[in-house]
């Protein structure tokens, strides 16, 4: 069964120039460096990685909140990267975003009514009364009530604000929502409420999610496929279950092993990575992961690995897998 591709990202690049003063050469930061993936309709695709790996930049570039440096972003047949501002504006009613920080992403001077009516007004949907009806029903759906209409964001708790943020994204009934760390600013008990809400909304409105997160347990719970990012590059893409049971890239393995245990009696073999994530302004040569990789080979220092397919749409960018399958060394299996 072939599913319809909703979004395909091809060789997307986003570089930032950082001027270093008059006489020094400016530094180029490759925040997103040549990544490609596709998202099919109705699925939840996750981007996972640590801070600075470029996952948020990827999300913002797809929505054209920042201009891509290179590559193509094709959303339902439209090349977003080449779209002028005005055309892009009309396309925005089909792709929306949920932000990480529910405190920063709502205008403090606007009431809930104004915040939720705005998308409908901007895209000239419905008349005044129908809009109000829509807003009210949307509030019910996200677990708030009509009675909250004329309140300001600071009167709500973090979880409630995130519900408002989600309502704002869903009210236009878009096809595609990018959720950038939607639950990481929330408390555990509220986090589960918001995750449930997102899953319900997905069913009800047939949404496609690009879910950006660093929290592996949340990703395992609610996504279908995962792309693991490290220093601006995708190192592994796989179905979620596949990735969690059979991670291939050494970084993915370390990442999974670093997740805290869920019960004190659980024994877990840890792969503790050496050092910190290098600065994207000055990435290591060859495979950017090699200085921290427990299984680094000589070739890793000089040559960037190619991406190879390993069945079941599982792809990895690592020299260990560029050779014959059997040779996968035992060295990196849970050490």
């Amino acid at each position: 069964m072939k599913q319809k591709v909703l979004l395909s990202v091809n060789n997307l690049k986003k570089y930032y120039d950082i001027p270093q003063g008059l006489f020094k050469e400016k530094i180029i930061v490759k925040a997103v460096d040549d990544i490609s993936f596709t998202i099919t309709k109705g699925e939840t695709f996750a981007l996972v990685g640590e801070s600075g790996c470029g996952k948020s930049t990827t999300g913002r570039t797809i929505l054209k909140l920042t201009e891509p440096t290179g590559g193509r972003i094709i959303f339902d047949g439209n090349d977003i990267a080449a779209l002028p501002y005005k055309k892009m504006r009309t396309l925005r009613n089909r792709m929306q975003m949920v932000f990480q920080d529910p405190y920063a992403s709502l205008n403090p001077k606007k009431t809930v009514r104004e915040i939720l009516t705005e998308p409908l007004r901007v895209h000239k949907k419905f008349d005044h009364d129908t809009r109000l009806k829509k807003v009210k029903s949307m509030l019910e759906i996200v677990g708030l009530s009509e009675y909250h209409l004329d309140r300001y964001p600071h009167e709500f708790s973090g979880g409630q604000r995130q519900r408002i943020g989600i309502a704002r994204a869903v009210i236009l009934q878009p096809d595609f929502i990018i959720a950038d760390e939607p639950v990481s600013a929330l408390d555990v008990s509220v986090q589960s409420q918001v995750i449930n809400l997102m899953l319900e909304l997905q069913k009800e409105f047939e949404l496609t999610y690009l879910f950006i997160s660093h929290d592996l347990s949340v990703i395992q719970h609610m996504t279908d496929r995962v792309a693991v990012m490290y220093l601006g590059k995708i190192v592994e893409i796989a179905k979620t279950e596949d990735l969690f049971t059979n991670p291939k890239h050494p970084y993915t393995k370390a990442l999974l092993s670093a997740v805290p245990i869920t019960h004190p009696k659980e024994k877990k073999e840890r792969i503790i990575l050496k050092g910190d994530v290098p600065s994207p302004a000055n990435p290591p040569s060859g495979c950017t992961f090699h200085p921290r990789c427990p299984a680094a080979l000589d070739i890793c220092k000089t040559q960037a690995p190619k991406t190879s397919e390993h069945g079941n749409s599982h792809s990895v960018s690592c020299h260990l897998y560029n050779k014959i399958e059997e040779e996968i060394p035992h060295a990196i299996s849970h050490s």
Binding site: R60, L63, L65, R89, T90, R92, N93, Q96, M97, F99, D101, A104, S105, L106, N107, P108, E118, P119, V122, H123, G165, R168
Partner: peptide
């Protein structure tokens, strides 16, 4: 640079 302004751009506000 505030996120709620980015949110407006994402919504499609002119």
């Amino acid at each position: 640079e505030k996120e709620f302004i980015t949110a407006c751009v994402a919504t499609g506000v002119s």
